[in-house]
Amino acid sequence: MSEQKRRSQTRMVPVPSESIVPERDLGKPPVLETHHLGIEFGGLKAVDDFNLTIGRTEIAGLIGPNGAGKTTVFNLLTKVYEPTQGTVMINGRDTKGMNITQASQLGVARTFQNIRLFSQMTVEENVRIGLHNQIKYDMFTGILRLPRYWKQERKQHTEALELLSIFDMQDLADVKAGSLPYGAQRRLEIVRALATNPCLLLLDEPAAGMNPHETSELMENIAKIRDRFQIAILLIEHDMSLVMGVCEGICVLNFGKVIAKGTADEIQNNPVVIEAYLGKRKEG
């Protein structure tokens, strides 16, 4: 498989913050850095001392058993939660005190584990919301239908269709988002996130509910998106064929702590990871 070949070609190199990035990204500032990131919910440490660096064009994976705190990490990175410890740096900027909207404007876009589309709106309108801060005009231009309104609306339309064509969804532009089949809804969430022109794309279980054929197609598309937009992608996934197939660096989380980091081969053979997933072999 070409995907696996690409992965084996990527050499991962360690960086000072106890993480690894692809060799090609070494000269560029990392897109995401977290230092000792942690959050407590009433004494429960959901995430503790989480350190991760992601390179400019890296595809990284975040895996771990159920309840390990993966989605909590995403919520910390997108400022749904304010961390109780540590820092999140996006594009070298500290996100302390920012809200979700400001984090998005810094270039973080995400999809959701439980799909959160604007279900009453059409597919195209969903993508247009993603373009909200890319192609702008103000309220009065819209109400008075000034020339700028028509110009920007046309621009939004072509841009939205072009983004939808990544997943061959341009024919569905006029369909209500809520009536799309499950797999298409997941793909639409990715398109909508891409429309915000991110530098870091967070995918929360993009292959959940997809059949093996759709999953392998998604895998190719993830690599395609990275190549085309030159962005970093961090994904949470339980489907190991996808994670091992497309991710360059993988971070394993258990009980809120990082238990292993490395390339796919390293993770697959790491005894701590195997224990976290399967339990310890009984002695004797």
């Binding site: 979700i100 909207t101 959701f112 589309l117 279900s119 709106m121 247009r128 920007q152 915000t196």
Partner: peptide, 29 residues
């Protein structure tokens, strides 16, 4: 009607349909 069919109107409806998703898309709620 013009407001509804414009960028601002879509943002208003997006906030109605899913507040968190709208915020994540950079829409100031």
């Amino acid at each position: 009607l013009n407001l509804i069919n414009s960028r601002s109107g879509r943002a208003i409806m997006a906030v109605r349909d899913n507040r968190i998703a709208a915020e994540s898309m950079g829409v100031p709620v």
